[in-house]
Nucleic acid binder design. Sequence first.
DNA 1: AGTATTTCGGAGTCTTTTCTCTGAATATAA
DNA 2: TTATATTCAGAGAAAAGACTCCGAAATACT
Lengths: 147, 147
Amino acid sequence: MSILFSRQCEYAIKAVVYLAVKKDGERVATNELTRRLNIPYHFVAKILQNLTKKGLLRSAKGPRGGFSLALPANEITLFDIVDAIDGTAFTRSCLLGFPECSGKNPCSVHNAWALQRESIQEMLVGKNVSQLARDMKKPEYQSRRKG
Amino acid sequence: MSILFSRQCEYAIKAVVYLAVKKDGERVATNELTRRLNIPYHFVAKILQNLTKKGLLRSAKGPRGGFSLALPANEITLFDIVDAIDGTAFTRSCLLGFPECSGKNPCSVHNAWALQRESIQEMLVGKNVSQLARDMKKPEYQSRRKG
DNA sequence: AGTATTTCGGAGTCTTTTCTCTGAATATAA
DNA sequence: TTATATTCAGAGAAAAGACTCCGAAATACT
């Protein structure tokens, strides 16, 4: 099937936005996330671990431990999260997978697709999780992709 | 990683465009395709078989057999190929995977992404393989995704 | 100090996608 | 009619992605 981002990346976005809804620095444990976001426990744990390594989150062990944003919510964009999890290859890669497709040697869909990519990227850079959190106060927070 | 279309779909597009470059009804064997497009033999064979089942291609067995377009090149759009291989879920699905995300109950990136999807779809519908074939007369036809 | 809670790190399993193989069926050409 | 070139069909192997498990380390609370 294949859609723009991996599952893991979708989950990461949901989790970070969830953290952004909380007060600054408030810690949230994996347990709460798995319940509220409906993401498998061990999987979301791993994802948060990854985000921590990338410096987007801060973690604390022990009772009352958990995860919190490492930066102000308005300084974390969707793009940052996508970059941390999936990388940014999609901003460059040819739709048809030609390795040598580029501006000076474009494949036949290069230009059209290049515009699309650009505008997707702009959207991702333009949305920070503080905005998303605001929209999301009414959390119809549920899980999984349907179809 | 995950990009908009599957590998199989990329390959399908390349193959169909390759056929469109040929004269009407000219048959091309799997062998030629695998060599020219650098796609694994048995894999491209399967893909062409799929496209045949979907009615986009015609096949002929035996010596001087092979595959050819089942329709005039200007009546096959990129969208048709994507539809045949990956399906069109991407035109509907929420970027974050919320199953109940929709126009009346949008997630926080719904509207932005809905516009993107729409414009991607328009591009796919707007490009037929005859146009692509024309662009591609200078075939820098090579293989695989790099990064 | 001891216990409970929580993340960390690595390895392991399951599923889907990508890619391979093989044996048959069919058509062409000599 | 025989040899050969080709697709067809389905099963199988390998790699990638999604998800699980477990033991260890850290911290807070009693």
